[in-house]
Design a protein around this nucleic acid. Sequence first.
DNA 1: GTAGATGGTTACTTTTTGGTAAGTAGGGCA
DNA 2: TGCCCTACTTACCAAAAAGTAACCATCTAC
Lengths: 120, 120
Amino acid sequence: MPTKTYHIGVEATMEIIGGKWKSIILCHLRHQTMRTGELSRAIPQISQKMLTQQLRELETANIVSRHVFHQVPPKVEYALTDYGESLSGILHELCVWGEDNIDRRQADGEKITLLSRDDI
Amino acid sequence: MPTKTYHIGVEATMEIIGGKWKSIILCHLRHQTMRTGELSRAIPQISQKMLTQQLRELETANIVSRHVFHQVPPKVEYALTDYGESLSGILHELCVWGEDNIDRRQADGEKITLLSRDDI
DNA sequence: GTAGATGGTTACTTTTTGGTAAGTAGGGCA
DNA sequence: TGCCCTACTTACCAAAAAGTAACCATCTAC
């Protein structure tokens, strides 16, 4: 198979946490283990399909673990793996920087709202 | 105009540094002011079009400054703004985490190469 | 007068990503 | 019997992001 080539480290990172949803999902999992339904309530804009798709990709990258409880109705819990935890600091900074960015833009007169801040 | 709504800070951050190219460009500008041609040599995979497009967007977000020297042939220099510098720590961590990720995957037997590490 | 250097734009196409809506499973429960 | 719950999948379609290739402007130097 062909060798995959990266030119700079950040490429690999963005391949894992990039895209519209992954960093958001990870920011939520940073604080707690969550069930599928909890995640979709926490991220109301995301569709079922995108949620599971992104979770699978994060699982494949060994960032998120999936724990299935064999019950009916089904129960599945997602959490950061130990390796995923190594992203925690970065995720926190990404949240905080974004909050500050929104503050600036608001102060600049832009019509923007931020619904919740990263409390921890 | 409709109010733009974010649910969590990281959304705003990723809107600015997300996508295939922005974080790479920023990682290069983190170390030095660069001319257009230098950037495209530093990021050989990027096309002219994408390079200028991404730089314009970063300029609009006030992350990058553009300094035109009125010469022939033209000379244009790009640099992080003071505000852009506030991303420097995050960008560095994204690079370092990615380097480590690549190391792990290599150790895991995946065929991957990283051409250069974030030296600073 | 023609080619080269630099930075940039445009029209067009392809690829990737995301969204919608419907369907599956299987036990609980009225 | 039939509907609910939860997690998940699938087929299909729309939109956004990125790639390609050709083109412009301007002065310098041959």
